[in-house]
């Protein structure tokens, strides 16, 4: 009993939509009850009609079957109504989800906006400039401290690299120009064909480096 007061302070989390859904679902339950009743009745009447036929009361059986047919139609109608109600419930639920999605997007949008406000273009420009300056400054310090390679050294390194790559290039066999002789098993030609371009590519990459 103590939390009667406790609960009052907490707002109910049941929305109007929830109540609407509940009402729809209750309606559906009622229809299901009805459906059950009619189905049972149909079952009964069917056996009764059989009994009547056995007893030779064809007229009565016919009347009963007519009634049954009518109820069958009712059952079908109920079925569509139930599915209508269910669709309505699903629609409401989906719209609720959509609303949540939009809410989420809105929050995200606001957040982005406020962050952009804190980060003006001029600031970014200034900061980038400053960073560039700092990098330049650092580079100068590095140069002073370690005495980095001179232009001559760089050239020497580059020519050495070229010598190495060209040296490898020479070892390559010439690419055959005549068409390949016919090989009975295609299985063997395929890997060979594949390997060659791959190796050429490797060399090309090395040259580029």
């Amino acid at each position: 009993m103590g939390n009667v007061f406790g609960r009052k302070s907490r707002p109910s989390r049941v929305t109007e939509q929830d109540r609407a859904i509940l009402q729809l679902k209750q309606q559906r339950d009622k229809l299901k009850h009805y459906q059950k009743r009619v189905t049972l009745q149909l079952e009964k009447e069917r056996s009764l009609a059989k009994q009547l036929l056995k007893d030779g009361k064809k007229e009565k059986a016919l009347v009963l079957l007519k009634k049954k047919r009518y109820q069958d139609q009712l059952l079908d109608k109920t079925e569509t109504q139930i599915s209508n109600l269910e669709r309505m419930v699903q629609d409401i639920e989906f719209v609720q989800i959509e609303m949540k999605v939009i809410e989420g997007l809105k929050v995200g949008n606001d957040c982005l906006k406020s962050m952009h406000e804190a980060m003006s273009l001029e600031d970014v420009e200034r900061i980038m400039d400053e960073t560039q300056d700092a990098i330049e400054y650092q580079r100068q310090i590095d140069e002073m401290l370690s005495g980095s390679l001179t232009q001559e050294d760089e050239d020497a390194v580059l020519s050495e690299l070229e010598a190495i790559t060209q040296g490898e290039d020479v070892e390559l066999p010439e690419v055959p120009t005549e068409p390949l002789p016919e090989v009975p098993e295609p299985a063997e030609t395929e890997p060979g064909n594949e390997r060659r371009p791959a190796r050429n590519k490797e060399n090309r990459e090395m040259l580029a480096a």
Binding site: N3, S12, R13, V14, D18, L22, Q26, D29
Partner: peptide
Amino acid sequence: MDGKAEVISMDDGKGVKFF
């Protein structure tokens, strides 16, 4: 009591929403 559900009373019958 645990805040995992809320029973809804309507004119005819009851329902529940889970959280």
